[in-house]
C-alpha cells in the first residue's frame, strides 16, 4: 500500500529528468515484486505441485526484447496488406487530429494527457490504475496520470477500486460522470448522451443538475432534459460484447436495439404497420448492419432503402 502511495506522490515528477525519482519508482516496483513473491512462496511452501509445470516452457525472451526495442516489433505485421495499413494510418491520423482538437478545447489542465484513439476498430485496454475500458469504433478517449477521462464516442468502463478512494471521472460533451468502483457504458457523440450501469453506482452531472444511477439503470439526455429508466435492455451492452441477441423480441424493440448497437438510425415509413405477434429470435455476432438487414429481409421480407446515414423500412410481412 505504501508502494502505491509512493508511486502516486511521485507521479507528477516523472516527466522531470530527475533520474533519482525514477530510480525510486523502479526500486519500489522491485520491492513490491519481491514482497508478492515471498507471500505466495510462503503459501506454496515446499509442497509445490511440480507436475503443473509440465506445460510450462521458456520463450525466447531476448529475441522478443530486441525486436520491440529495435522497432521491428509488430508481430504478424507482415500479414496486413501494405495498402490497408496505409489507409489505417491515414484514418488514424485524421482521428487523432480531430481528437486533439476536441481534447484541447478549453483544456487548461496541468495533467499531461495522453491521447488514445480507436481509429476504426473496436478495442480494449487497461488504464494505468488497472481499470478496464472497451472502446467502440470511432471513439476517442484521453487519459492521464489522474483518473480523469475525456470521452468522445462510446465506451464501457470497468473501474478498479483504489486504496486512496481517488474519484474516477469521465468528462462528456455534455456533462460529467463520477464513479467509484463500477461497470458502466457511456455514449457521448455530439448531442447524444447515454449512460447505462451494469454494476455499482455513478453520478451524472449536467448543467447544475445531477442524477444517481444504480446497477440496472439507464439515462439519456433528451434535448436538455435528463430522462432515466430503471430497466435496461438485454442488449444495452451488446456493442461491447459484439453479440446482439433477440429472443421473441418485438420487431420495433429489435430495431431500437439495432440502432443502439450500430449507432445508426433505422426508421419505419409512416405507412408501415407491425403486428404485435411479429417477433424475432436471432443472434448476430460481429456482423455489420447490412448482414442484419439481410436476415430481416429473409425472415420478414422487408423492403428498405438508404436514407442519409440510416435506413427506412417501407414494407414488412410477418
Amino acid at each position: 500500500m505504501l508502494y502505491l502511495m509512493n508511486v502516486r506522490e511521485n507521479i507528477h515528477n516523472l516527466n522531470n529528468p530527475d533520474a533519482s525519482k525514477e530510480a525510486e519508482i523502479l526500486a519500489s516496483w522491485k520491492q513490491e515484486a519481491e514482497d508478492t513473491l515471498s507471500g505466495i512462496q510462503a503459501i506454496a511452501g515446499i509442497n509445490f505441485p511440480y507436475e503443473t509445470l509440465k506445460d510450462y516452457r521458456q520463450y525466447p525472451k531476448e529475441t522478443a526484447f530486441q525486436k520491440i526495442i529495435s522497432g521491428n516489433k509488430q508481430p504478424g505485421a507482415g500479414r496486413v496488406l501494405p495498402l490497408i495499413r496505409k489507409y489505417a494510418a491515414a484514418i488514424a491520423f485524421l482521428v487523432v487530429a480531430v481528437a486533439a482538437f476536441y481534447f484541447t478545447q478549453g483544456s487548461a489542465s496541468s495533467d499531461s494527457m495522453e491521447k488514445m484513439v480507436s481509429a476504426a476498430n473496436f478495442m480494449q485496454m487497461v488504464l494505468p490504475d488497472g481499470s478496464q475500458v472497451t472502446l467502440d469504433k470511432y471513439t476517442a478517449m484521453s487519459y492521464g496520470q489522474s483518473r480523469n477521462i475525456k470521452l468522445d464516442g462510446r465506451a464501457f468502463f470497468n473501474v478498479s477500486k483504489t486504496t486512496d478512494q481517488q474519484q474516477f471521472t469521465v468528462a462528456l460533451h455534455k456533462g460529467k460522470i463520477t464513479v467509484l468502483g463500477t461497470r458502466f457504458s457511456v455514449t457521448s457523440r455530439g448531442d447524444l448522451t447515454e449512460v447505462a450501469v451494469e454494476e455499482g453506482k455513478v453520478r451524472y452531472e449536467y448543467d447544475g443538475r445531477e442524477i444517481i444511477l444504480s446497477a440496472g439503470e439507464w439515462m439519456k439526455l433528451s434535448g436538455e432534459d435528463i430522462v432515466s429508466s430503471q430497466q435496461i435492455s438485454t442488449n444495452q451492452f451488446s456493442w461491447k460484447d459484439q453479440v446482439l441477441e433477440f429472443k421473441n423480441t418485438p420487431i420495433e424493440k429489435a430495431i431500437m436495439d439495432i440502432n443502439r448497437h450500430f449507432g445508426t438510425y433505422i426508421e419505419l415509413a409512416p405507412n408501415v404497420q407491425i403486428k404485435s405477434e411479429c417477433l424475432i429470435t436471432s443472434k448476430f455476432s460481429k456482423e455489420g448492419i447490412e448482414a442484419v438487414l439481410a436476415e430481416f429481409k429473409l425472415l420478414f421480407n422487408i423492403q428498405y432503402h438508404k436514407k442519409d446515414t440510416g435506413y427506412v423500412i417501407t414494407s414488412i410481412k410477418c
Binding site: 502505491l4 508511486v7 502516486r8 507521479i11 516523472l14 516527466n15 525514477e22 519508482i25 516496483w29 515484486a33 508478492t36 520463450y59 522478443a64 525486436k67 520491440i68 526495442i69 516489433k73 509488430q74 508481430p75 504478424g76 499531461s112 495522453e114 488514445m116 487497461v126 494505468p128 490504475d129 488497472g130 496520470q145 478498479s160
Partner: peptide, 28 residues
C-alpha cells in the same frame, strides 16, 4: 501466446511513453 504478449509490450513501449505512471504493473 508470444504474439499477444509481444503486442502488449510493444504498445507499452511505443504508445505508453511514460510507463513509470503505471501504478500496478502486474495487474496492467
Amino acid at each position: 501466446a508470444e504474439d499477444a504478449v509481444m503486442e502488449v509490450f510493444t504498445h507499452l513501449w511505443t504508445v505508453n511513453s511514460n510507463i513509470s505512471q503505471i501504478s500496478n504493473p502486474k495487474a496492467y
